[in-house]
């Protein structure tokens, strides 16, 4: 998965991820910089050094007494946030509690059910089939699959499994496999790692799509649309820019131009 979905939008909305700052080609060679210096990034609840691990960031910020664990008192960012870190509820957040969230388990299943299938029963994935799927993805026969190899099969995936959507364009499906399965941190998923991942979540030796428990909506009942539905007046709002210098009111565009709203976040 790319760094946040907002990044996905870059490629689609703008068409390019980055562009030269220089209008005149020679400015990039004639001058040391061809763009004005950018202001320093503000301080905030994020890691400025993205190469560090999540634990290194949190411990560096909160483990005041250096005992290798973070207490609620050291954390100080509220009970709900601390509870998400202190998964065993013993009053301390530790490195081994920083596991990937449940969304990645869902992604792994979705990817496996589509990428690793090789038979006519797409709703069930057995261990041997999973292994065959791994071997098919491991195009260089190295014994480990990489992001490049997995993504190379993207075009061959037939999303024939109902209810299992394909990852959106730009989302790296390998990321979830890596987060949950890459135990030695080499950014590949070896065959033993992959099979361990399968075994950890298999029930009765297989992965199967969950069966629907009856109709989601009673016959004749309308399905409530979450958010602002087509044809309805758009909820008005007035919000400020990140620097606080500009305020935008949605209704100010009425009668002038359509407005494309892009909701998202860094993560």
């Amino acid at each position: 998965m790319k760094t946040g979905l907002i990044v996905l939008l870059c490629a689609a909305v703008l068409g390019v991820l980055s562009g030269c700052c220089c209008v005149k080609p020679r400015c990039c060679t004639m001058e040391r910089t061809c763009a004005p210096a950018k202001p320093a990034l503000p301080d905030g609840p994020y890691a400025k050094d993205r190469s560090q691990s999540a634990w290194a960031y949190l411990a560096g910020k909160y483990d005041a007494d250096g005992d290798g664990k973070i207490s609620a008192a050291e954390h100080g960012r509220g009970e709900r946030a601390f509870k998400n870190l202190d998964q065993d509820g013993d009053g301390f957040a530790t490195q081994d509690e920083l596991t990937p969230g449940p969304v990645h388990g869902l992604m792994v299943r979705m990817i496996a059910m589509q990428w690793f299938q090789d038979d006519d029963n797409p709703g069930v994935l057995g261990r041997a089939e999973f292994g065959r799927g791994f071997d098919a993805i491991d195009s260089d026969r190295s014994g480990a699959i990489t992001s490049r190899e997995l993504n190379a099969r993207l075009d061959t995936v037939d999303p024939a499994i109902k209810g299992m959507p394909t990852p959106p364009p730009g989302m790296d499906p390998f990321l979830s496999l890596e987060l949950l399965g890459d135990k030695n941190g080499d950014r590949t998923l070896s065959r033993p790692e992959a099979l361990a991942l399968f075994d950890a979540s298999a029930r009765d030796g297989v992965w199967a799509l969950p069966k629907r428990k009856g109709a989601r909506h009673p016959p004749g009942a309308s399905r409530r649309v979450a958010g602002a539905a087509v044809g309805e007046p758009a909820p008005d709002f007035t919000l400020a820019s990140p620097d606080g210098k500009t305020q935008v009111t949605l209704s100010s565009f009425r009668g002038k131009r359509p407005v494309a709203l892009i909701f998202g976040s860094y993560t």
Binding site: V13, A54, P100, P258, A260, F263, S265
Partner: peptide
């Protein structure tokens, strides 16, 4: 068309319910 980014709550905060907790990714509380 007016394009407007509306920045909302984090989808995968480090201390959220669906965290992304790996170096190299945005680590945001």
């Amino acid at each position: 068309v007016a394009f407007l980014v509306v920045y909302i709550r984090e989808a995968h905060a480090l201390d959220g319910r669906s965290p992304l907790r790996k170096g190299g990714l945005p680590l945001v509380e």
